[in-house]
């Protein structure tokens, strides 16, 4: 698959040209893993949604609502309540999207476009645009700066997310039904797959992963803010498409999404280390993503 080649090519390119700038240092490579963790988790949910033939544009807003919910709840309640609340709102918003799409038969593009705006507004009004600090050190350890056996917690969460996501996507009946629903909804229906329920579930999964990403951001920044997740929409969609997931359903890869997300992180990182001007960073990144998406889509058509 293209993403493997692209990933290796860009990695090698930066490894050679930025060797003196510390690209290959353990610290820098760890940074890339930490920085991409929330986007990778979001990408997993998006792979499920796209594979079932739906899109979720609202996950960025869910990230902000979830992060703010955790931060606010943790001010007065213990860890477990905060985590449950953060993930809970993610799943609930996903369920709202899902019910509108699956049972009221509204197009997911329009539903999630609307809920994206709706929850971006709610995130802004939740704390009147204020940032909320997260003081609970157990939380910031588990979801942010902590380590287990010298592995950073964000890396562990990424590994768990990708591992579980891949297994469910490739090795369960649910995963097969998601793919069938996106591939040919009529075929799925006549073979007894509960197509509407699958659509509901994938949007709930996307809400859940966005909620999880919100937790990781809140842990990493030790604070939550309404802007969290806002700029991830395009990055995550690009990562998922570059990773070989079809925009119109029936085909995808969780591992590809991980590599796509790492590719995006590597680009951000490498272009800064190259000391390019900010505008040039954007131009080069845009061109590389364009190339990657084009090659990836051509590849999947054959």
């Amino acid at each position: 698959m293209v993403v493997y080649i692209g990933f290796i090519a860009i990695f090698l390119f930066f490894a050679v040209t930025l060797y003196d700038d510390g690209f290959l240092t353990q610290r820098n490579l760890t940074n890339i893993l930490l920085q991409t963790a929330p986007a990778t988790i979001m990408a997993i949910g998006l792979v499920f949604a796209l594979s079932a033939g739906e899109i979720d544009l609202s996950f960025g807003s869910i990230v902000a609502v979830s992060a703010l919910t955790v931060a606010v709840v943790l001010q007065d309640y213990p860890l477990i309540v905060g985590v449950a609340a953060g993930l809970g709102v993610g799943v609930a918003i996903g369920a709202l999207n899902g019910v509108l799409v699956a049972y009221l038969k509204l197009p997911s593009f329009l539903v999630t476009l609307a809920t994206m705006g709706l929850f971006a507004g709610i995130a802004r009004s939740m704390t009147d645009l204020r940032s909320v600090p997260v003081m609970n050190e157990t939380f910031t350890g588990i979801f942010g700066s902590g380590k287990l056996f010298s592995l950073p917690s964000l890396v562990i969460w990424t590994a768990i997310g990708v591992g579980v996501g891949h297994l469910v996507y490739r090795q369960t009946r649910f995963g097969a039904h998601v793919l069938a629903t996106g591939d040919n909804p009529r075929a799925a229906l006549v073979t007894g797959i509960k197509v509407a329920r699958i659509r509901l579930y994938v949007l709930m999964i996307s809400g859940f992963t966005a909620g999880m990403a919100g937790l990781l951001y809140a842990g990493r920044l030790q604070a939550a803010k309404y802007t969290l997740g806002e700029s991830d929409l395009m990055t995550v969609i690009a990562a998922v498409i570059v990773g070989g997931t079809a925009l119109n359903g029936g085909k995808g890869s969780i591992i590809g999404a991980l590599l796509g997300s790492l590719l995006m992180g590597m680009l951000n990182n490498g272009l800064i280390l190259m000391n390019l001007r900010v505008s040039d960073q954007m131009i080069v990144r845009g061109l590389i993503i364009l190339l990657a998406v084009a090659v990836s889509l051509r590849d999947s058509k054959r």
Binding site: D21, S131, L273
Partner: peptide, 17 residues
Amino acid sequence: GFDAAKQRSDIETALTK
């Protein structure tokens, strides 16, 4: 780009140098 998470990443990346 006003993204607090990106600012954090930018700081980490810059510290590599």
